[in-house]
Nucleic acid binder design. Sequence first.
RNA 1: GGUGACGUGACCGAGUGGCUAGGUAGAGGUCUGCAAAACCUCCUACGGCGGUUCGAAUCCGCCCGUCACCUCCA
Length: 501
Amino acid sequence: MPLSLYNTLTRKKEEFQPLHPPQVGVYLCGPTVYSEAHLGNARGPVVFDVLTRYLRYREYRVRYVRNITDVGHLESDADTGEDKMAKAARAARVEPMQVAQDFTNRYRQHMLALGCLPPDIEPQASGHIIEQIQMIEEIISNGLAYEVNGSVYFDVPHYNDEQQRYGKLSNRSIEDQLAGTRANLEGQSEKRSPLDFALWKKASPEHIMRWPSPFGEAPGEGFPGWHLECSAMSRKYLGVLSDIHGGGLDLMFPHHECEIAQSQGSHAHTDEARFWMHHNLITVNGTKMSKSLGNFILLGDLFRGPTGGLAQGYSPMVVRFFLLQAHYRSPVDVTDDALRAAGKGYRKLMNGLRLLDKLVASAGEAAGSPTAADQLLALADKPASFLDDDLNTPRALAALFDLLKRFNTLATTPAALAEVGAAALTAAAASYRTMVQDVLGLQDEPRANAEQLLNLTLSFYSEAKADKAYDKVDLIRAALKDQGIVIKDTKAGVEWAYSEE
RNA sequence: GGUGACGUGACCGAGUGGCUAGGUAGAGGUCUGCAAAACCUCCUACGGCGGUUCGAAUCCGCCCGUCACCUCCA
């Protein structure tokens, strides 16, 4: 069965075929690292992690690019000249790049904890100023951008007339947008049209993050516009036309719309990517989680808990499972009830994982009947087939629970196990394991506390010793020694230490 | 105002013109020293009103409600 994905550009599901099989180029718009990531920021990476894992499972050779935007986007009004990064740096009295590095480090830790494999390339906007400037020069030479006072703006109306419809991704007409922006024209006097967006901004004196600028009459300094880095870096690492480009629904306009305009307006003359994918947002009490609304739940806090109205912490894998239980194009509301339910479901799936080896072993050499074997194999094939349908992770999980139920039954019914046979069971078990761990990226998180287990063992040790049951005492000593732990009987009681051997 | 999404059982959350997803919670049962796990059974819902259809929760229309984007945002 072919993989189909919903393409925002065409507003329908389309069969996915890479441009240059078996290579697949995937780009995800990454974080702006001026603050710690919240749960909402995690959805894209988790969704795209599953996407890239699944593409690899289907034996494509994936190049997955997820950028770090460390060039501060402007805080609000462009004319104040202050950007997010600079503001955060000023507040902490450190170098802006220090802010960026700090949050980048934390972001990577959190993504790793959530089971997201590191991207193949993680380019930073600040490291691609040259590429961005080049792209601007191309757009200027194509007559689609103009320079004013050292800043460069994209000429949206001209682009719209000359080439493609600006708004084709978000399905807006240029007239509608003009109607919507008429109210807030102030502070945009440099722009010819309120729809125009900045490709390059001249740095005001107080603007900290700045780079030498080729634009304007006197040599000056400036910084790239908000949408340019993704276009430039996608092109550098995935070519003028990549296979898949994605991000949150809220990036569709203006960010992705502008990216398409930039790529069309440059010498690339493409939509930048063939498939544009947008995941839905995470809400709290039905309202979007966002930095500006202040209703966000930071990932670090979420893992530790309690925080932001949640009564407890939830482990990264539970959070991942929680996110995957909803389809990526549906909104997800965060509540304790939902997270707790997800936690139990996750645990169930993991306990299934632990059952598999024993189950396969107990099947022995049983030949089995073709009918029973086929039934099990059909069940085992379902999860992947649901992922083929626009990455339907909730259905894939449902199919895995169905398969797990069958495994559990087989584990307690030897006759049925023999009926299925060793070959089918081994294949189905492998399929379950691959799907859960490698494709959905759900790993078992041991909950047991080793130290507490050790203390329990030591209490048995003490008991055995008091009973002079030296065979048990020796057994416990030997078992712990295998773990590199030695028991020390002291006057104060039983203690332990790691063996120095 | 423009654009788009959505309203499913106690909760979360899939889905399709007819064949009761799945998870969680609840009830009963099997099993069990107790318990847990597991399995079996039950709880059968699709905002409202019309329309199309042999048949709609699924298609169409209207209404009600919620949300998002149009300004930085995953």
